[in-house]
Computed example of a mutant assay.
Amino acid sequence: MNASVKLIVVLGFALMVGCTVVPGAYHSPTPGWFIDDDEIPQGEPLPDVVKVHAIGTAILDHQDIHPVDRGVPEEIDLSDEEYDYQVGPGDVLQITVWDHPELTIPAGSLRSSAESGNWVHNDGTIFYPYVGIVNVEGLKVTEIRDMITERLSRYIEDPQVDVSIAAFRHKRIYVTGEVDDPGLYPVTNVPTRLIDAIGEAGGLTPSADWSSVVLTRNGKDYRLSLRDIYQYGNTSQNVLLQPNDVVNVNPVTDAKVFVLGEVGKASSLKMGRNGLTLAEALAENGGFNQRQSDASGIFVFRKASEQAEHGIDIYQLNATDAAALVLADSFRLQERDIVYVTAAPLAKWNRVLSLILPSVSALFLGSRTEGALRD
């Protein structure tokens, strides 16, 4: 076998091997994502946890990305009918006994109700004339009214008693982050919902991410979206707050997406307060490379929700027809999304050649040298 034949055989073998190890990342639905190594915990193979969705014309009405019926976990989905304030230490009660001003307005009548009312002590009790010490902690005002009425009836015929709360000081919620006036805000007998708390805190700052509001309750975090409430009318996100809830509005600088693959410049992008569409993300990074990219393989990788049975959602846009880029402008990205543009088959082939050509050139020069020495 002469040197030329050897060179052809080696070249053919190198090309076949090179096609199996195309450099660079790409998305494949076939198995083989992980090296089989029993000593390294791998978890589920990636194809088993991936669900692929086509970005089609259905998203033009935004229903696929922002459904108006997107709910919240059942444990925080409470109705106003389930809410009733319970008195606790620090609250001030205003107790009125009609036709008995000596019981209704104690000494110092010029003071406000919050100052002259019945302070609930640290042990949860109050003192009231004729009634004595009453434990009111954890009771509703209607229950306190009935208790005082029953005890006063021993001394006053048919007493007409009313009980209200003059100052709410026991239960509070915490509003932090990107609001004008963060701090503690009292929970009152009027149900407080998410937008009420944000309003009490002065509203959002210009750097607030209104799509990323974190509610912490009993040590567990829930992500809510003011954008869904205001822009899409999703009132289920406007949850009823409970005592000791912490509402934190994240800064928009924390919300990023990542653009990788065959684009002008791979980078991370800040989403901005109004979010980011797929078209905007591609344009910010110089668009997809017309010579190197595969326009049918524009993917958005997204971690699936906790309720989903799979782990990763992949949205695929086929932009071989430029009109499909309208769909990209309707597809709204979410925080931590990964936009990936795959390489065209010819670009992959060129990469294979770039890897094997140095070796082939060395073989070619070696064969020429061998032939020259033989001659």
Score class of each variant (00 low, 15 high):
Gly90His: 09
Val187Trp: 09
Ile173Glu: 03
Ala344Glu: 11
Pro45Asn: 06
Gly199Met: 05
Asp209Pro: 04
His27Thr: 00
Phe13Trp: 11
Leu204Glu: 07
Asn122Trp: 15
Ala167Val: 01
Leu241Arg: 08
Phe331Glu: 01
Ser267Gln: 15
Leu353Arg: 03
Arg145Asn: 12
Gly287Ala: 02
His310Met: 06
Ser236Trp: 07
Ile338Glu: 10
Ser112Pro: 10
Leu278Val: 00
Ala308Pro: 05
Gly371Glu: 13
Glu306Asn: 13
Pro106Trp: 10
Ala167Gly: 10
Pro73Asn: 09
Phe288Lys: 00
Pro89Asn: 04
Ala295His: 11
Thr277Gly: 07
Ala58Ser: 15
Leu46Tyr: 13
Asp69Cys: 11
Met147Phe: 07
Val213Lys: 03
Gly56Gln: 04
Ile59Gly: 00
Pro243Gly: 03
Ile338Arg: 11
Leu365Glu: 05
Ile35Thr: 14
Gly177Leu: 03
Leu194His: 05
Asp221His: 12
Ala167Leu: 15
Gly108Glu: 07
Pro186Ala: 10
Ala319Glu: 05
Ser212Asn: 14
Gly88Glu: 08
Asp313Trp: 05
Ala14Asp: 01
Ser367Thr: 11
Asn2Trp: 15
Gln290Trp: 01
Val246Pro: 05
Leu152Thr: 06
Glu82Pro: 03
Thr277Trp: 10
Pro243Thr: 00
Ile59His: 02
Ala3Leu: 13
Tyr174Asn: 12
Ala322Glu: 15
Val263Arg: 01
Asp209Phe: 09
Ser305Glu: 13
Leu184Phe: 12
Asp245Phe: 12
Gly18Ser: 13
Ser236Glu: 13
Asp254His: 09
Gly177Tyr: 04
Ala114Trp: 08
Arg111Ser: 03
Ile338Ala: 04
Leu240Asn: 03
Gly132Ser: 02
Val131Trp: 11
Pro106Ala: 00
Ser207Lys: 11
Glu306Thr: 06
Asp64Val: 08
Gly32Phe: 04
Val134Asn: 02
Leu7Thr: 00
Leu194Gln: 10
Tyr230Gly: 02
Phe288Gln: 00
Val249Tyr: 04
Phe13Cys: 14
Asp146His: 06
Ser153Phe: 01
Lys140Thr: 04
Arg273Val: 09
Gly311Phe: 13
His121Ala: 14
Pro31Met: 04
Ser268Trp: 03
Val326Trp: 03
Gln160Pro: 02
Gly132His: 06
Ile95Glu: 11
Asp254Ile: 03
Arg172Tyr: 13
Ala328Phe: 08
Ala328Gln: 02
Ile312Tyr: 02
Val214Met: 12
Gln316Gly: 00
Asn244His: 09
Ala279His: 11
Asn2His: 09
Ile65Asp: 07
Asp337Tyr: 08
His121Val: 00
Val97Phe: 05
Ala166Glu: 10
Phe364Ile: 09
Val21Met: 12
Leu357Ile: 11
Tyr222Ala: 02
Ser79His: 04
Tyr340Asn: 00
Tyr174Thr: 10
Thr192Gly: 11
Trp98Ile: 01
Ala201Met: 08
His310Ile: 01
Asn2Val: 06
Asn122Ile: 03
Asp146Asn: 03
Arg374Asp: 10
Val52Gln: 15
Asp321Ile: 01
Thr30Met: 10
Pro345Ser: 03
Val179Pro: 09
Ser359Asn: 06
Leu184His: 11
Val263Leu: 02
Gly88Trp: 10
Lys6Asp: 05
Asn274Arg: 06
Ser236Val: 04
Tyr232Glu: 08
Glu284Leu: 11
Ser354Gly: 03
Asn289Trp: 02
Glu74Asp: 15
Lys348His: 12
Gln94Tyr: 13
Trp119Glu: 06
Thr57Val: 14
Thr188Glu: 09
Asp181Phe: 14
Met1Lys: 07
